[in-house]
Design a binder for these strands. Structure first.
Length: 580
DNA sequence: GCCGTTTTCGGCCCGACTGTTTTCAGTCG
């Protein structure tokens, strides 16, 4: 039982209690308990086992006891009892947009609907629309929600799969028969979501390695098992495939299984033009054709070199110009995690964050950052306990005081994540915005505007000289909620014209603005700010996801303002408002 | 269910939008 497992159980208890119409504050206690358990810096399960949990704010007696039971026995009778009152499929229903706990409770009580599939047929049979409080439109909206969910059901976000990748690689590399192991596929290419995970090993004893792979502790089901490949399911239905090849084949297999398909096609064409043929095992002479001698190939760079190319980072391999750039020696020198010197857009307990200003500052320094931007929510974001003018002014003052305690090598920037209101005006007046070091402007409400109106709304906001950067441009939540309608190229042009930065929100739920647009933004001269949108100390580390997306968008350290030094970035965030 | 405490129970997060209503409940952020 890991802390993540325990947190998931608390979260499910909260859902089931919503169904039962329990006291909302009790529900909230479980939900916040889940977050505390998940993000606790330390081995909370070990502490729970030893009954050493007292003093953690938000974990009272009841939750401490339940954690102790989970840590010692591996299950929780309270949860088992609660769960037995509903069918297993009931949890799926919470993932459907437009349907909440009251609705789920009603369709279960009156129609016996306890899964997405049953709900779908009940709607199609016209049963849901007839229920009191429902109607044709609501039923149709729920059906849309189901369709979106189904279309994205096999998509996994990076924060879901990254721990699996690390564990599997660790197991494979520890295997005595394995000389090389790598993850391939869209994960290696840095895609924002993945459907499955592809692993590759070099070994002389494939059967042994395959056997080790299918008997890993996280394996729930073995789908296929042969002498050179196997497929398994791990938690949440995530599929992991393994390919075992000889060491001499490894570079070719690594290249082939990394893809993308389009990139591979281009590679094979290049091989053909040299009289060679390329597959997942080798580069070889085409029989009966005169070709130049094939050089020795031990790793991927050798393979690219043989084809007259520089080695493109996996993130670039989408056949969107990387082959041409590799040929001309013009591949970008992609940004790396260690280039980041600070982050903007983070939250504290002042709004909906879980850590205090001081805790966030300490964590940022531990990560080696020179600066930390705080941008708590503004007053219209009630749900997030947004700050009003008085509280924000007090926070600015606290930040200024705290800054006195740091040396010249660290600074907190006082900012705000200001809501862009429906008409494109901002949640604070210009006088207050002028007191801040910087401003992130984001849309958090009225997502259903027509595209032209939404685009204008955002452009009006970034035309404000105090708006330093535009937060999560499309509002999407990966695999859960689509982007609102907005014309991205038009917004990019406006950002270029007004000298506004665009954020790459590094939360694995968002990765917004999407990597596909950064090349265009770069061409227009728009700079990027990679921000974790951290709501806890732990959340600061989400920058790793943002870095992957930035690399996929061809960004270098010159394109990302958080790579600037403290002095440089201080000048930069003041630039736009000075110009006006 | 947690917190703070005038150590025993009251307070804890609010508003817009939608679709259903005929004055409001559910959902979302």
């Amino acid at each position: 039982m890991t802390s993540a497992d325990a947190a998931a159980i608390f979260e499910k208890i909260a859902l089931l209690m919503e169904l039962k119409g329990e006291n909302p504050f009790k529900i909230r206690a479980y939900r916040s308990g889940a977050e505390i358990v998940e993000s606790y810096a330390g081995d909370i399960m070990k502490m729970a086992e030893a009954n050493e949990l007292s003093g953690i704010k938000g974990l009272g007696e009841a939750l401490r006891d339940k954690l102790h039971e989970l840590a010692t026995t591996g299950h929780l009778s309270f949860y088992e009892n609660l769960k037995s009152e509903f069918p297993d499929g009931i949890f799926e229903l919470f993932e459907i947009q437009g349907l909440g706990p009251k609705g789920i409770k009603q369709i279960y009580a009156e129609l016996g609907v306890g899964s997405t599939a049953e709900l779908k047929s009940a709607i199609e049979d016209g049963l849901v629309a007839k229920l009191a409080g429902f109607g044709e439109k609501k039923a149709a909206k729920i059906l849309e929600g189901i369709a979106f969910r189904e279309a994205h059901a096999s998509e996994f976000r990076l924060e879901q799969v990254m721990p699996v990748v690390e564990q599997v690689l660790e197991i494979l590399r520890a295997h005595p028969g394995v000389s090389r192991a790598e993850v391939c596929g869209s994960y290696r290419r840095g895609k924002e979501t993945v459907h499955d995970l592809d692993f590759l090993v070099a070994t002389k004893h494939p059967e042994n390695v395959i056997e080790g792979f299918v008997s890993m502790p996280m394996v729930i089901q073995v789908i296929a098992k042969g002498s050179t490949k196997a497929s398994v399911h791990v938690a949440q239905g995530l599929q992991c495939d393994l390919r075992a090849v000889a060491s001499s084949e490894f570079p070719f297999a690594l290249n082939y299984f990394t893809g993308s398909k389009e990139h591979n096609v281009a590679m094979r064409q290049r091989a053909l033009s040299r009289g060679w043929t390329l597959n997942e095992y080798a580069l070889s002479q085409i029989e009966g054709r005169e070709g130049t001698a094939i050089p020795e190939i031990e790793d991927e760079p050798d393979l690219y070199r043989a084809l007259g190319l520089d080695w493109p980072e996996p993130e670039l391999r989408e056949n969107t110009g990387e082959i041409e750039a590799a040929e001309k020696g013009q591949l970008p020198y992609l940004i790396k995690l260690e280039n980041l010197r600070g982050v903007f857009h983070n939250h504290t307990t002042a709004s909906d964050g879980k850590a205090t200003l001081a805790e966030m500052a300490e964590a940022a320094q531990e990560l080696g950052f020179q600066y930390l931007g705080i941008a708590d929510h503004s007053k219209s974001s009630f749900q997030a306990n947004g700050l009003d003018a008085t509280r924000l002014r007090r926070q600015i003052e606290t930040i200024r005081e705290l800054n006195q305690t740091f040396g010249s090598d660290f600074r907190i920037f006082a900012g705000s994540e200001v809501d862009i209101l429906k008409d494109g005006s901002l949640d604070f007046d210009d006088d207050l915005l002028a007191e801040l070091d910087y401003v992130v402007a984001s849309v958090h409400s009225v997502f259903n505007l027509p595209e032209a109106e939404m685009t204008q709304r955002i452009i009006r906001a970034i035309e404000n000289p105090h708006v330093t950067m535009l937060g999560h441009l499309t509002g999407r939540l990966l695999a859960q909620r689509p982007s609102y309608a907005v014309n991205i190229p038009t917004v990019i042009d406006a950002a270029a014209e007004t000298g506004t930065l665009i954020e790459l929100n590094a939360s694995p739920w968002r990765l917004d603005m999407d990597w596909r647009w950064w090349k265009l933004a770069k061409e227009r001269g728009v700079k990027c700010s990679i921000n974790p949108d951290a709501h806890s100390v732990h959340g600061l580390k989400d920058v790793v996801f943002g870095i992957r997306s930035a690399r996929k968008g061809w960004l270098t350290r010159e394109d990302v303002v958080n790579c600037l030094t403290l002095d440089e970035v201080t000048t930069l965030i003041a630039k736009k408002r000075l110009k006006s």
